[in-house]
Amino acid sequence: MGINFRQETFRDDYSFKNSPEQIRRFPFPFPEDKYMYSVNIEPHVPGLKDTVFEHLFDVDEHYISEMQDRALVLAEDPLRCQSLPHMELAGWDTLELLMTEKAKSYPDLFTLTRDGDKWHWINRPLGIDDHFTFGDSSTLPYGPLEYITRQSQGDFAVLDQRDNNLWMDAGIVTTQADWSLDFDIGMNFFEWHAPVPLAHQMGVFTRALKFLMAMQQGQPSRRHNWTMTINSRLDTSPENFHKWGTDRATVTPENVGQKVHLRVEVQMFFRLPRSNALLFPIRCYLLKMDELVTSPKWARRFHRVLRDLPNELAEYKGLVRYRPTVVEWLSKYDDGAPTSAGLGPD
């Protein structure tokens, strides 16, 4: 299986798009015709062929372009990757997990050779071939977390576990749905989730924290979240909100199909062995409305979800300004027929 890596952009001319195969494997997040915040955690078990869950860490046709976009973001704002001093060990844990899994899942793309602490890493798509000493940061061009996550799609938060809580003490965040690592670093689980509406009162975070603290090595889990993005911009950061916020006012009935994207985050949780920290990869997938409606079931269901979304959630997700236009556009694809069970495109 060779991946046909696309050359495309997530800024300026926004040349991003999904191939038909990539549309079919999009992780559509709505199991029913309505949405309410929930914990929705399930075991992260690899193996579902032709889905983004085939491997523990999915590599897809956008890999090279996403990594180029990440490098641009980091050059502009190095504060998007930070690690408090006590998190270096967790950085090495992360590097080990990502390298071993990538090499196992995609042997044609990645190769890892280990001889004690002398490691040799080859990343063919990005043209990287490095020898380094595991545990010795001076043998890598960046810290271990930054080094490996410059080669891995998605954001990564690394959570220290202590005092019956999880602490956002390291991470790399360049494809975020509007939260600032620089501001949130050092916060505990309840603090960094503080801005999320409704869920605290529902006890969602108390239950989620209890589950996550008991997570064990070798038994990762995942959940998903979603929002919407105007233009295929990966870096919807609060840092640059004053630059991209105006995009939200540019949606018209004519451009919905190309301009408006469903943005799905697959969030995963891994217990890291040396540091006892939790790794929290947040992988972002974008789907244009034109691409979404190639599945009649997804079109019907997303129309209903968006139309009936509680106002607080629409506000929090930043959809208020353009929701009516998108709902109106989607209604043309909803004949009122019932939708089948499950997430697949039919």
Binding site: S180, F183, D184, I185, G186, M187, E191, A194, P195, P238, F241, H242, W244, G245, T246, R248, A249, R321
Partner: peptide, 22 residues
């Protein structure tokens, strides 16, 4: 000025209020 507070910065978070329409 949000209620979101960072101990590390000892500060509240300020986010552009009219980014969607300056």
């Amino acid at each position: 000025v949000r209620d979101h507070y960072s101990r590390r910065y000892a500060a509240f978070q300020g986010v552009c209020i009219n980014a969607e329409d300056p």
